[in-house]
Nucleic acid binder design. Structure first.
Lengths: 193, 193
DNA sequence: TCCTTTCTTGAATATGCATTCAAGATAATC
DNA sequence: GATTATCTTGAATGCATATTCAAGAAAGGA
């Protein structure tokens, strides 16, 4: 009897970073062994193959981002304030020009989601959970009369998701606060009409 | 003396489709020879290498889309009407679930733009030209008092670009008119506030 | 018709890569 | 301490793939 030695979360976060920098197809197993510190045999033993490692990394990414999201909204502050801070945080990530701060879900969706049904469904589920988190925040804001009573929380949450996707794409071409911040502000103000 | 035999535009459109379906890295030269009908030697003679073919395909994509854009807005109809039709057309492309109707600029930006400076700059230029086309339409709408006089056309054009990027990403997860059309409508109505 | 130039062909090359596996190492159990 | 079950190691394997190049084909000019 013997237990596995490596720290699963640390390995998955390293793999996630590697996939974010080079994309799935261009990240070689050599890159992954270097990034994770694991030898090929260990990776195949733990995750079956390269695709299994991507799936596990996406799961870890979702867990990490969800925890971050819950934490940001866990206080009793004005939910709209929290949402504004959330959007501003995304702008900051775009400004960093750091590939490891990008969104693994949308990146993987674009590259492999169209070609692999397993991964497409996994990402779809994760993005949907994220959308429902935003929807809950909007319902809270509505019950506190911070946004119009006739707001359709689901559509508004979808609109915010759409805006966040677009903001991140825009950030790839213009990682510039003078450009991105007004866009994030305008997106936020769409809640108040 | 002898002239090249193949139709350059047809070849580039075929390559563009291949890249849209599988992505750049996963599209093999074998895929490209099959799609274009050209043999490897001819591709290397005409485009230098696989990356050169991608660059040429992106150029063709931009030319094709620009021509389509100009044509849609060339009539003397209400520019806002035309813009609405443009957004509705994008919704239709999303609904088709056809990878060849996706946007090669954003797809290539996501996959290779972060890794290759040549391609990043080319895509950046093309997306910027597209944004300026929208900006011109907004200026026309403003001069016809169809949108508020204090509209900042540049920011509004950026916001529309952002929305279009996001709409296409959203379409990958929910290719559903009941979801996408309200989002496009809400994006359009952001012009009128 | 013959010659020259240019284009086309596709097999060969060389490299890179995902995956496997058998030997070695380590921890728990007796 | 011996035994056993499990984990780790990393070189070997076989396949996929980007690129090259020399021979073949076709067009224009003499």
């Amino acid at each position: 009897m013997r237990n596995a030695e490596f720290d699963r979360q640390a390995v998955l976060r390293a793999a996630m970073r590697a996939f974010l920098v080079k994309g799935y197809a261009k990240t070689s197993m050599a890159d992954l062994t270097k990034a994770t510190g694991l030898h090929p045999g260990s990776i195949y033993c733990a995750f079956e193959n390269k695709k299994g490692l991507l799936i596990a990394a996406i799961g870890q990414y979702h867990d990490d981002r969800s925890a971050q999201f819950q934490q940001l909204f866990a206080n009793n502050n004005n939910p709209l304030h929290n949402l504004k801070a959330y959007l501003d945080g995304i702008v900051q990530e775009c400004l960093s020009c750091d590939a490891t701060q990008a969104c693994l879900l949308t990146k993987a969706l674009s590259e492999v989601g169209e070609q692999d049904e397993d991964i497409h469904q996994l990402i779809h589920r994760n993005l949907h959970a994220w959308q429902q988190g935003i929807e809950q925040v909007l319902n809270m804001a509505k019950s506190q009369r911070l946004i119009p009573a006739d707001t359709n929380s689901q559509v508004q949450a979808q609109f915010l998701m759409m805006g966040i996707y677009g903001l991140r794409t825009f950030g790839h071409t213009e990682p510039n606060a003078a450009v991105l911040q007004p866009l994030a502000d305008k997106l936020f103000s769409s809640l108040l009409n």
